[in-house]
Write a protein that binds this DNA or RNA. Structure first.
Length: 726
RNA sequence: GGGUUCGUAGCUCAGUUGGUUAGAGCACUGCAUUGACAUUGUAGAGGCCACAGGUUCGAGUCCUGUCGAACCCACCA
């Protein structure tokens, strides 16, 4: 690249915002689909639109940005695509809580008005996310920014739904689902958490048999008893029907034999409640048992419960115990500790129940995903996540994709009348993005957030969008897909990563990304996750205020090892932040020494990059004297290692290398020894400094740009430099 | 019950395919300081690399087992 010195402006930036604006105004973050440079694409995991970015996000984004900047310096056409996710349940719950405080009820507002509020709230929350991104120096291509509910993704999601529908992979029907009574919607297995609870195990008399249960209140929904077929104790009872007292009259129940029953647990007999338990549902299906609904969607008992009708589950359990005892049904209780499923979002106890929902048959999708993963088409970091995902994919059950919410992609299914909509008449419905005509009513439910997130690698590049704006993007899809780099927290490996692989393979017959980087989780010193309720989190904005962006980024890179959790506290992060802030000061001082305190200005200003030969030997060049040759060798070794580390995505090692070189080789040894031959060493000093800045730029973008601007001979921005070739 | 990962200095952690004397930051001790830099320099102390076997010329690194910690998955009613 020819340097035209006349065009070079020395920028004296007042603050980091000015630097960021300079980059943005110069369009240095923009990808260029028509350039002949080799593409390198990175997809930012869309953060949930629910609030502030936390420390984990900051680390994730710092990693993405370092890789993107590195690849740009290497001469790639880099696309770092930003976007945010509408985060269905979570967003809706947050907004409802907010509205409740203002005494506005959702029902009163109605769907349309509520959605207006939602979009307002969305842009409010988005501002804080966007601000933090810029704060961190994220070099994202803002011209490509996407929101999951935008038109493009909406059309892509429709395409996805329609295809499944036409291929017979989508069905609607009653099925047992994990139901959150508080969020009032079905949720997926992967959306639940387990909490250890100390409860009781109740031993109840059912006809001639005694069985153990933790949930006596589901008694009203029992339709059978079951034992293990190999259990000799109960052989004579199998197939026989007994009359069982239910507290609301007698019910005839059969004893069935099913291998799902563990003969070692309790008495070896279970009551079967197909309407409110997953195992029981399966047993029921195998033995053709009737299903009774004993618990409603609001978590209260139904009329089956007689005088207990309307009571919440826990209340009913307490209240019915005396009656059970009195009637001789409750024989004894034992202390019992077990895991209770709770909603990941609101922590309320999940009620398995039967609900009319939409499902996707995932068997073929999963098979495809397994095949691409086994072909090693995706480079998983760490490697073992490959196996973990395959195991999960192997016995995946059908995906419940409907949610009883308003915030999301509404299911693109229409019914000819309100009545057929209510009864969900499958035969009459039409799949369409827009209304098929007057009188048609759209399905009330929306799609699971992950239905659209799973499509993210494609929908962000215009896939499935038949409109003009979608078609104009096809070149980008060809150029940037599959993505070169994707990063994620391990906790959403199934929810998101697994889905993306399945969906991408199904629709494009290829992988969604070439590198899948799972960073570790940042935890507190006791190894617990950060959470609002524990208050153990560390706010990235605090660290940035205290130590600066670049130092904060550096501190985070030291925790960026794939799959390795880091234990941190405010003190520990302050320690590292301070350490790298000191490093920043060191580098400022080095540059002041080299660029501002020059021995003789005539000697130093060389005219072009080429005319200088920094590797020329000094008179007394040997190891002990730390001469030019020595430092050039050290630099070369360092840049080789840094390049290798970056290529292998070992950012923590790269940071370590540069840190050590700058401080302990360059500053402590070379600069010290150069003081008595300053004039002769000056070209080398400048050369090394500039190379150091380039090596460091992916990690400390602001500082390196700031110092770079002080060079006499330079390009417009350090972002336009070339990464040292080795 | 199945799976994964970890155990290295007082603390938080690095240690790339096995290869000199096992490293960093912080903390600690001595010394220096009109210096580009005290947000510094320099010297140092601190480790049976969890434990026990094995493979090897050679093991923090590979294999087996034991103990300890954490996480994920699963239909323990």
């Amino acid at each position: 690249m020819k340097i035209n010195r006349k065009n070079i402006k020395h920028n004296n930036f007042k603050n980091q915002k000015e630097i960021y604006d300079f980059w943005e105004n110069e369009k240095l973050f923009r990808a260029n689909p028509s350039s002949n440079k080799k593409p390198y694409s990175l997809l930012i995991p869309p953060p949930n639109l629910t609030g502030e970015l936390h420390l984990g996000h900051a680390m994730q984004h710092a990693i993405l940005d370092a890789v993107a900047r590195f690849k740009r310096l290497q001469g790639f056409d880099v696309l770092l695509l930003p976007g945010v996710d509408h985060a269905g349940i979570q967003f809706e719950a947050t907004l409802d809580r907010k509205l409740k405080k203002k005494n506005i009820s959702k029902e009163k507002l109605g769907r349309e008005k509520w959605l207006e509020e939602a979009w307002k709230f969305k842009s409010e929350v988005y501002k804080s996310v966007s601000k933090t991104w810029r704060f961190l120096g994220l070099s994202a291509d803002w011209s490509h920014e996407v929101f999951t509910l935008d038109e493009g993704p909406r059309r892509a999601v429709f395409e996805e739904f329609k295809t499944y529908f036409e291929k017979g992979l989508i069905y609607k029907g009653p099925y047992i689902v994990q139901w959150c009574p508080k969020c009032n919607t079905a949720i997926e297995d992967v959306e639940l958490e387990y909490e250890e609870r100390k409860e009781k195990l109740y031993f109840l008399k059912y006809g001639p048999l005694t069985l153990a249960t933790a949930r006596p209140e589901t008694k009203f929904g029992d339709t059978a008893m079951a034992v293990n077929p190999k259990d000799k104790r109960y052989k004579e009872y199998v197939g026989k029907v007994f009359t069982i007292e239910t507290l609301t009259g007698n019910r005839k129940m059969k004893v069935v034999a099913d291998s799902a029953v563990d003969p070692k647990f309790g008495t070896g007999v279970i009551k079967v409640t197909p309407g409110h338990d997953f195992v029981d549902y399966e047993i029921g299906k195998r033995h053709n048992l009737p299903i009774l609904q004993a618990i409603n969607k609001d978590g209260r008992l139904t009329d089956l419960a007689g005088k207990y009708e309307g009571m919440k589950v826990m209340e009913a359990r307490e209240k019915m115990l005396p009656e059970l005892k009195e009637k001789g049904i409750l024989i004894k209780t034992e202390d019992y500790t077990h895991n209770v499923a709770v909603c990941e979002r609101c922590k309320s106890i999940i009620e398995p129940l039967i609900s009319e929902e939409w499902f996707v048959k995932v068997k073929d999708l999963a098979k495809g995903a397994i095949s691409v993963i086994n072909e090693d088409a995706i480079n998983f970091l760490p490697k073992n996540y490959k196996k973990i995902l395959v195991v999960w994919l192997k016995d995946l059950h059908d995906w419940c994709i409907s949610r009883t919410l308003w915030w999301g992609h509404r299911i693109p299914v229409w019914y000819p009348s309100t009545r057929s909509a209510r009864s969900g008449q499958v035969a009459e419905m039409k799949v369409s993005l827009e209304s098929p005509g007057k009188g048609w009513v759209q399905d009330e439910q929306v799609l699971d957030t992950w239905f659209s997130s799973g499509l993210w690698p494609m929908s962000t590049l215009g896939w499935g969008d038949q409109s003009q704006s979608g078609k104009s993007k096809w070149k980008e899809l060809v150029k940037y897909f599959p993505w070169d780099f994707e990063i994620s927290a391990p906790e959403i490996k199934y929810l998101w990563i697994g889905r993306m692989i399945m969906i991408s393979k199904y629709f494009t017959n290829t992988i969604p990304f070439k590198v899948m980087f799972f960073h570790g989780m940042l935890r507190d010193l006791q190894g617990r996750k950060f959470s609002k309720s524990l208050g153990n989190g560390v706010d990235p904005n605090y660290l940035i205020d205290q130590w600066g962006v670049d130092a904060t980024r550096m501190a985070l890179y030291t925790y960026s090892i794939p799959g390795r959790d880091g234990r941190v506290s405010k003190d520990l992060l302050d320690e590292r932040g301070k350490n790298f802030r000191n490093f920043e000061t060191k580098l400022r001082n080095i540059s002041r020494f080299i660029l501002e305190l020059k021995p003789d200005s005539n000697v130093i200003l060389s005219d072009s990059e080429e005319s200088r030969d920094p590797s020329s030997r000094t008179q007394d060049d040997n190891k002990e004297n730390f001469g030019n040759k020595w430092i050039m060798d050290e630099l070369s070794k360092t840049s080789q290692k840094v390049t290798k580390n970056l290529e292998q995505l070992e950012l923590h090692l790269a940071v370590d290398e540069i840190y050590n070189f700058v401080w302990h080789q360059f500053a402590d040894k070379y600069i010290e020894s150069s003081k008595n031959r300053r004039v002769e060493a000056q070209p080398t000093l400048e050369h090394i400094l500039k190379q150091v800045l380039i090596l460091l730029h992916p990690f400390m973008p602001f500082l390196t740009e700031e110092i770079y601007q002080k060079f006499g001979v330079k390009r417009k921005s350090i972002m336009l430099e070339d990464f040292p070739q080795n």
